Simulated scan of single mutants.
Amino acid sequence: MAAGNHSLVTEFILAGLSEQPELQLPLFLLFLGIYAVTVLGNLSMITLIILSSHLHTPMYYFLSSLSFIDLCHSTVITPKMLANFVTEKDIISYPECMTQLYFFLVFAIAECHMLAAMAYDRYVAICSPLLYNVIMSYHLCFWLTVGVYFLGIIGSTVHTSFMLRLFLCKTNVINHYFCDLFPLLELSCSSTHINELLILVLSAFNILTPALTILASYIFIIASILRIRSTEGRSKAFSTCSSHVLAVAFFFGSAAFMYLQPSSVSSMDQGKVSSVFYTTIVPMLNPLIYSLRNKDVKFALKKILSRAACL
């Protein structure tokens, strides 16, 4: 029997963020603005890093990869959500739903591990500055990035494969604004114990492991910074890490709230709020955080704009 035939439902209705008709247009305009800023910000960051030769370093290589992940992560969710705001019924087919779930998980998991790779890069830069160019070679950066996407694809494939095995027949209404794991499990007529166990185990690996890696990196980083005698040197070292710390706090905080607790404890209404943060708000904020708090990025932007003005 084909995987898709395990479901008795051929299409779903997404409940969305709000059932109140008067809120649909304001929410559409709000999230359209957020998505426009997200696309513009992340594409600008990627383009700026490609065009600026002095940004061709491991730190900005990872930052451009993060911007690509954020762009894709938001694009998997937001366009469908925007379309649903202006339609009477928020309908999504079963194959489309499973496809959205798959790619959402790929980029969500990849972002967790990319943030960990960026923390390791900052650890090497501050704790072993003389060996930085040797340790953070092009080959290591490339394989770290490959590993990030590999973990995303493996985790997403496992979750989606086990979701395809379930009989989804209780109702065709998904109490969410996109196809996520917990809302889909609520529709299952068959046992979901294995799926829930997989969510806890894989979420613990994909959230806690990067989080602990980041925490360990920053323990060594702070210890190294405190040994710097000059106030200016300490301030400069802290400033290179502050943007990353903000990005980590926003993303891991909202993701952990959603996935690192049993489905019986978390409500879908709370889940929707936390999901908005890591699917739409964080991808918009990341390029703003890294550009507004980064002198190199601001310098590169001014240089590009001055070149464009001279043409």
Rank of each mutant, 00 (worst) to 15 (best):
K170N: 12
H193S: 14
I174N: 08
N206Q: 15
E186P: 00
L202W: 08
T240V: 11
S230Q: 07
E196K: 13
N195Y: 10
H159D: 06
S190V: 02
C189V: 06
A237D: 04
Y149A: 13
A216I: 07
L168A: 02
V173I: 11
S188R: 03
G233L: 08
C241P: 00
C189S: 14
T231C: 13
T160H: 11
N195H: 14
I174T: 04
T240I: 09
N175S: 11
R229L: 08
L181E: 11
L168Y: 03
R234D: 03
A204I: 02
L202R: 09
I174W: 03
G233V: 07
F167W: 07
R227W: 08
T213G: 14
T240Y: 07
I194E: 08
M163K: 13
I222D: 12
R229Q: 12
H159F: 14
C179D: 04
T209P: 00
L212Y: 13
T157H: 11
C169Y: 02
G152I: 04
A204D: 05
A223C: 14
N172Y: 06
I207H: 03
M163D: 05
I221A: 07
S230K: 07
A204S: 15
A204F: 01
E232D: 12
F167P: 06
S161A: 14
F238G: 03
S188M: 02
A211S: 15
L208V: 15
T240G: 06
I194D: 05
Y149E: 14
L198F: 09
C169D: 12
S188E: 02
V201E: 10
I153R: 01
F167G: 07
S190A: 07
S239D: 12
L181H: 08
C241Y: 00
S190F: 00
C241E: 01
S203P: 04
K170S: 12
H176I: 00
S242K: 13
L200R: 12
L215Y: 13
L198N: 12
Y177F: 15
S190Y: 00
A216H: 10
I225L: 06
L197R: 14
S190K: 05
G152N: 05
V158K: 01
I194P: 00
V173E: 09
I214V: 10
S224L: 02
S188V: 01
I153W: 04
